[in-house]
Design a binder for these strands. Structure first.
Lengths: 114, 114
DNA sequence: TCTATATTTCTAGATATATCGAAATATTGG
DNA sequence: CCAATATTTCGATATATCTAGAAATATAGA
């Protein structure tokens, strides 16, 4: 579970900057077709070297996949992982002991309606 | 939408460190009852000043709420916001033009089963 | 092979974050 | 008011991240 926590934290961190989140949304919208580095650059205005850095960061976190095709690289959102990460917090809620040490009853919140 | 992007990035950033994510999970598990700073400290082993820093960070991002009660502070996960943030990425997918510029068809992913 | 295109690596300064001990502040109970 | 408890602020250092220009690499096409 610590491994999973670490992975989740890395994923959130990789989504936790405005430029990177912008890039991720571009890729999500592009769907399975993905986008070339140059496409993303054109859409976001991020400098090539900076963008490369961010893409590596996101790929390492598992948010995206990159596939080399000739002299271009196609980046795609990893939808399975994104779904998994998106539900991580709420999923974790009752996965463990749900009673607080101080003896107070633990409140029950309604299930996510997503 | 840029405002929302900024808020989302801040939220993800606030979840994007292992200690903070650990704290957040403690609070999620504690439910509406919440936890005192001392409770969290006891569970995570994070030094008081460090923990205070992280709690402020998370509160600023809207992940948690803090309420002063006498000489203690109760911290609670903001479940509404967490649900919202959790679905941000996937929600955004088809909120905008969903067709990539390069003309390729956009892939469809299954709905989250959460 | 030469050239243009696409991406990556290198380098480096600026900024932000993480950490924690010690001191300070607030509040309750006596 | 005093002592104990709970949390915050201060100060300081270490580490990480962000940014981007310039040079390097890889590949396709003429």
């Amino acid at each position: 579970m610590t491994v999973e926590l670490e992975r989740a934290a890395q994923a959130f961190s990789a989504m936790g900057s405005e430029p990177r989140l912008q890039v991720l949304l571009c890729l999500v919208r592009a769907g399975e077709a993905g986008l070339l580095v140059g496409d993303i650059q054109a859409r976001t205005g991020i400098a090539a070297s900076t963008l490369n850095h961010h893409l590596k960061f996101m790929a390492a976190a598992g948010l995206i996949d990159q596939e080399k095709q000739g002299r271009t690289i196609v980046s795609r959102a990893n939808f399975d992982f994104l779904n998994h990460v998106g539900s991580f917090i709420i999923d974790q809620c009752c996965a463990d002991a749900c009673l607080a040490d101080n003896g107070r009853e633990v409140g029950v919140r309604e299930k996510s309606d997503v």
